[in-house]
C-alpha cells in the first residue's frame, strides 16, 4: 500500500497544507466544495501509479488564506504559484466540482504548466438548460442528499459523514463554508468568460461525469467538451455528483486509462 503524509509549504505568506503519497509521475488532485476530506480510497488507488499531491486550498482546512486572496480568479493564480513552490512543472491536473473549475481556470492561465487535464463533475460553466444546484440554499444536509446517487454505494460515507464531528472538525467545516461563500457566492459557481477562454487549452483533457449528477447538470460535460479543443467525455452510470467517492474504482480506472501513453486518440 503506497504511503502518504501531510506536508505544508509557504506560498505568498500563507502556509498551505497538502497530502502527498505514491510513486510515479506527479498528479495534482484538487478537492471539491467540502474542502479536503483527507486521504481517500481514490487517492490510494491513484497513488498506485502516480505521485499524488492533494493540496488543501487556502482558506479551507488548515491552509491559511492570505488576506488579499478573495476571488476565484485569484485562487487560480495562487494555486499556480503553489505548483511553482512545489516544483511541479508539466504536471497532470485533476479536480472535482470547484476543484475542476479551479483546474480549468489554471489551465487557461498557464496551459504549458500541465500535460493533461482531468475535470470531474466540474463547476465553472453556466448550464444552458438547467442550473447548478445552490448548495448554500439547500444547506449541508440538503446538499449531501443531492450529491450522491445512492449513499449505500459510498463506502466511506459513514466514516466521513455519519459520525459526530469533533469541535475541531466543526470549526473547520465552518471555515470551509465561509471560504466557499467568499470565492463562489456570485456569480454562483461559474465564470462567464471561461467557455471562451478554454479555447486556449490544447491539452488532452478527460471530462468525467456522474450520469445522475444533481449538483452540476450533465449538460455541462458537453459544454466543457465543446469549449476544449482536445477533450473527451466519460460518463459513469448510476453515479451522482461525486464519482471519486461514489465510484472510486471506475473513476480511477478512467484516469489511469487516460494517462497511459497512447490511450488518447
Amino acid at each position: 500500500m503506497p504511503e502518504h503524509a501531510e506536508h505544508a509549504i509557504e506560498v505568498g505568506g500563507a502556509r498551505i497544507h497538502y497530502l502527498k503519497g505514491g510513486q510515479g509521475k506527479p498528479l495534482v488532485a484538487l478537492h471539491g466544495a467540502e474542502g479536503s476530506l483527507g486521504w481517500r480510497q481514490y487517492h490510494e488507488q491513484l497513488a498506485e501509479s502516480f505521485t499524488v499531491y492533494a493540496p488543501t486550498c487556502p482558506g479551507f482546512g488548515q491552509s491559511e488564506r492570505p488576506p488579499w486572496l478573495e476571488s476565484f480568479t485569484d485562487l487560480a493564480r495562487f494555486s499556480l504559484w503553489l505548483l511553482d513552490a512545489l516544483e511541479l512543472p508539466q504536471v497532470t491536473l485533476a479536480g472535482h466540482f470547484i476543484g475542476g473549475w479551479l483546474a480549468a481556470e489554471m489551465a487557461v492561465m498557464s496551459p504549458r504548466t500541465f500535460d493533461r487535464l482531468i475535470l470531474i463533475d466540474a463547476a465553472g460553466i453556466q448550464p444552458r438548460d438547467g442550473e447548478i444546484a445552490d448548495i448554500f440554499l439547500h444547506g449541508q444536509e440538503g446538499a449531501r442528499q443531492l450529491t450522491y446517487f445512492d449513499t449505500q454505494q459510498v463506502a466511506e460515507y459513514a466514516e466521513l459523514f455519519q459520525r459526530k464531528p469533533s469541535k475541531e472538525e466543526r470549526d473547520i467545516h465552518t471555515r470551509n463554508q465561509e471560504t466557499l461563500v467568499r470565492y463562489c457566492w456570485k456569480p454562483y459557481m461559474f465564470s462567464p468568460s471561461l467557455p471562451g477562454l478554454l479555447g486556449r487549452v490544447q491539452l488532452p483533457t478527460l471530462i468525467i461525469w456522474g450520469q445522475d449528477d444533481r449538483i452540476v447538470p450533465l449538460e455541462c460535460s458537453a459544454l466543457y467538451q465543446r469549449a476544449l479543443p482536445n477533450a473527451r467525455v466519460a460518463i459513469i452510470p448510476h453515479c451522482g455528483h461525486c464519482p471519486p467517492l461514489e465510484k472510486p474504482t471506475e473513476c480511477v480506472r478512467l484516469i489511469q486509462n487516460f494517462l497511459t501513453p497512447g490511450a488518447l486518440e
Binding site: 448554500f136 444547506g139 449541508q140 470549526d171 465552518t174 463554508q177 465561509e178 466557499l180 461563500v181
Partner: peptide, 14 residues
C-alpha cells in the same frame, strides 16, 4: 426557520 437562512456562512464572525 433554517438557521443558515438567518445566518448564512460568513454572516457572523466566528
Amino acid at each position: 426557520l433554517p438557521g443558515d437562512f438567518m445566518a448564512p456562512p460568513g454572516y457572523n464572525s466566528r
